[in-house]
């Protein structure tokens, strides 16, 4: 199975087991570089997919929590190469497919060809690039697809029907439905608008839909899980790690159906 298929299958299997798939985000090397592998292993053990954030100096789609985490990780010396090396060296490999979430510039700096090869060798399954809209994503998509890796597309509540259809066709692994018009870490919102939106996204997508941005509570997980197969938890998990909480316990409590 290639990377895209592994992601898709992990989400589908969770659904078959009657559970909402959990896609968990951590910033690589935060709170500490030394605990990255064990944090990742723990998070993977209770998640269906793990997003590993590649820190960037100018995270324009992120709220204060992930800004803080990115800044600290960069200060500590985290680089894309280090992240790939660490993930590649994990034995056993993380028990859930790993997707790197990165702004475009660090990926450009490595070069898409080298990136795709190294990511696949490290066992990474795909990428999410929040500042790379569909229209600009052809070149990276092609390089990643050459290694069987997913490029996950994002849509938001203001995405037009035509763009939604195009993203639903192009996305690999899953389609990321941003639940808010805004940055990470805010309030996921809810209510009738959210369910109508999620249904729109789900009916346009050829891959499973996972929704997130600002998901913090078990109630939100089960609310979103009623409409789409997966939920993304980011800033709230990063904050739990900052507090020194056990990430596995934190995530398990978010998904009482599991």
């Amino acid at each position: 199975m290639n990377g895209s298929q592994r992601i898709e299958q992990a989400i589908r299997q969770s659904g078959e087991a009657g559970r909402t798939a959990l896609v968990s985000y951590i910033t690589a090397g935060y709170p500490a570089m030394a605990s990255f592998r064990s944090d990742l292993a723990k998070v993977a053990s209770v998640s269906d997919v793990v997003e590993v954030g590649v820190p960037f100096t100018d995270p324009m789609a992120d709220g204060v929590t992930i800004q803080r985490a990115s800044h600290a990780a960069l200060e500590a010396g985290v680089t894309l190469q280090w992240i790939l090396d660490e993930i590649g060296a994990m034995d056993p490999a993380p028990s859930a497919p790993v997707v790197l979430m990165s702004y475009l510039n660090p990926l450009l700096a490595m070069g898409f060809g080298k990136l795709a090869g190294q990511a696949r060798a490290a066992g990474v399954a795909g990428f999410i690039v929040p500042d790379l809209p569909l229209d600009e994503s052809g070149e990276l998509d092609q390089k990643l697809a050459g290694e069987g890796l997913a490029l996950v597309q994002l849509v938001s509540p203001v995405t037009t029907a035509a763009r939604l259809a195009a993203a639903g066709r192009a996305s690999r692994g899953f389609l990321y439905a941003v639940t808010v018009t805004g940055i990470t870490g805010g309030d996921a919102g809810g209510g009738g608008n959210l369910s109508a939106y999620l249904h729109r996204v789900a009916s346009s997508s050829q891959v499973p839909v996972c929704a997130g941005f600002g998901v913090r509570s078990a109630d939100q997980v089960s609310e979103i899980g009623r409409h789409v197969p997966g939920v993304v938890v980011g800033s709230a998990l990063v904050e739990a790690l900052e507090r020194g909480d056990d990430p596995a316990a934190f995530l398990t409590a978010l998904r009482p159906d599991a």
Binding site: M60, A61, L104, P130, D131, L132, P133, L134, D135, E136, Q153, L154, V155, S156, P157, V158, T159, T160, R163, A167, V178, T181, G182
Partner: peptide, 12 residues
């Protein structure tokens, strides 16, 4: 040039 922005800004 180009447009390297989150999807949310594309319609704007």
């Amino acid at each position: 040039g180009g447009r390297y922005v989150p999807e949310t800004l594309v319609p704007a």
